[in-house]
Amino acid sequence: MTQIAAVGPKPDAQEIRYEHPSRLTLTRRYLRRNKSLVLGLAIVIALTLFTVIGSLTIDTEKRAYPLAVKPKQPPSAEYPLGTDFFGRDLLAVMVRGIWQTAVIGLIAGAIGTGVGVILGFLSAYYGGVVDTIIRAVTEVLLPIPAFLILVIIAGSIDRKSVTIYTMALIVSLLAWMGPTRVMRAQVLTLKERLFVNVARLSGMSNLEIIFKEILPNMLPFILASFVSGVFAGIFGSFGLSVLGLGPLREPLIGNTIWFAQQQAAFFNGWWWWPLWPSLALVLIFVSLTLINVGLDELANPRVRRTE
């Protein structure tokens, strides 16, 4: 926008000045209206800053693991969040735990959305047998509570070898059916639009149409699906780790709560131990939901009018 305004003829002083707000101004104005998006992003940024500043200032490599500090200390000036039964500094545990939990969510969200986009395109764009198979498989798998299957998978593998990456893979195994369905529906409506027909008549190849015409129009949906995927990934990995099925050597938010429960932290009066991870997770889940509501408004402007 700014470039166009700058290249045009020099504005005359007498001429009526039309407002050409820059993209930045437009974005800022939009964000003022979309409060949930702003609030959600603000929480995510705050959490990111917490982990970045935390890992730069604290020795998380050492203090987030057992026997690093004095155990069972309540929050104090030396240990702002206290320490746990195993002698881990909870501040360092939180810094590292939030980061690694986020990594699991991001990987799971990316895999689920990526597979969903590919299958959705194959299914809707090419139709036929491919469509029938993909649709049948998604329809049959969707009603099965994915978490039950995840629990069984996670319970079957050797617990000592589970890393945060295997965890992310397990969680994303059953996370692609929802995105596939959404993407398929989107492609089906988009491929009948006039601009796609024009592109086809003007001799664009299928791949060109997919990448240049359809995909850009689906970005808000892909983004929303990614955010839901991250949410589901963190949700799933949290569920697994509070059952004691996650990686136990690496600090995660979920397994910090599990360890606290195992040692009966509330019963013994070490209330700070499970409290911080719980609050961190509440913040993560709430911020992702807010972002999703905001993205929904961005993608379907009609929702705005009903507010």
């Binding site: 569920g239 209330w271 409290l275 997770l281 889940f285 709430v286 939901t289």
Partner: peptide, 22 residues
């Protein structure tokens, strides 16, 4: 209500144990 819906029941349960039971 929308915020609460985002939080797993397990976490709400944990916070309830802390505030109401403990």
């Amino acid at each position: 209500l929308m915020m609460l819906q985002a939080v797993p029941a397990y976490l709400l349960g944990l916070l309830l144990i802390f505030f109401i039971a403990f």
